[in-house]
């Protein structure tokens, strides 16, 4: 079990990232980086493959240690071999596959993953993933009508999956909070104005 950030523990079965398991987030974003940050802060090496636009300054804010981060921005057509090699060295690999992996390839990589005892965090589609997480709603604070700064984001994150993760859990988080970290949002902070026509729940994470 790799540790997760305290604010994310309620969302994950047994409060961490189970070794040998796959976690999937539909789209790359700060949630992916925050999921990796807990393990990285605890000393794990973290490989990021196929995500050239990973905002590492934000990741550092959530707790990711760049000293123990390897980036493979463009793994190319040989990405399964790259991921398998990275899993040999890194406890956690964050991957955005260039295409949805066919089922045989997924089985093979999952076998490598179990043997290596690592965690695969997929930013994209991975039907067999043990846990699926996504951001349902999010709202940035700090911006006005021509003034202000983007400060923090209140996000509703949901997690479901197979086995012990099959129970759907939903939490409101500051992702990120004003200090750049991740925190559980107070109920009073949660944007209640969900009725205005402009604000609607979107599925994209």
């Amino acid at each position: 079990m790799l540790p997760a950030l305290p604010a994310l523990r309620d969302l994950l079965p047994r409060g961490g990232l189970a070794r040998g398991s796959v976690l999937a987030v539909p789209e790359f974003g700060l949630l992916c980086l925050a999921l990796a940050a807990g393990a990285s802060a605890a000393g794990a090496w973290c490989g990021i493959a196929g995500v050239p636009e990973a905002g590492l300054a934000a990741a550092v804010g959530t707790g990711l240690d760049v000293e123990r981060t390897l980036l493979v921005p463009d793994p190319g057509p040989a990405w399964p071999q790259v991921v398998a090699s990275l899993l040999d060295g890194c406890e956690l690999v964050l991957l955005r596959p260039p295409v949805t992996a066919p089922v045989l390839l997924r089985r093979r990589l999952e076998a490598v993953l179990r043997r290596a005892g690592g965690v695969l965090l997929v930013a994209g589609d991975w039907p067999g993933a043990q846990v699926h997480l996504r951001v349902i709603t999010q709202r940035w604070t700090g911006l006005g009508d021509g003034h202000g700064r983007v400060r923090a984001c209140c996000a509703e994150v949901t997690a479901d999956g197979r086995g012990e993760a099959s129970l759907t859990r939903t939490r409101w988080l500051w992702l990120p909070a004003e200090d750049g970290g991740v925190a559980v949002a107070d109920p009073v902070d949660i944007p209640v104005t969900r009725t205005p026509p402009g604000l609607r729940a979107v599925s994209a994470g």
């Binding site: 490989g47 090699s85 060295g89």
Partner: peptide
């Protein structure tokens, strides 16, 4: 560690020296 270096160098062997990066803030 040797383990990480080996993994990184294997990927470098596949994709080239510049393909595996370490970030510096």
């Amino acid at each position: 560690s040797d383990r990480v270096a080996r993994a990184a160098m294997r990927v470098q062997a596949m994709l080239g020296h510049e393909a595996v990066l370490r970030p510096v803030t």
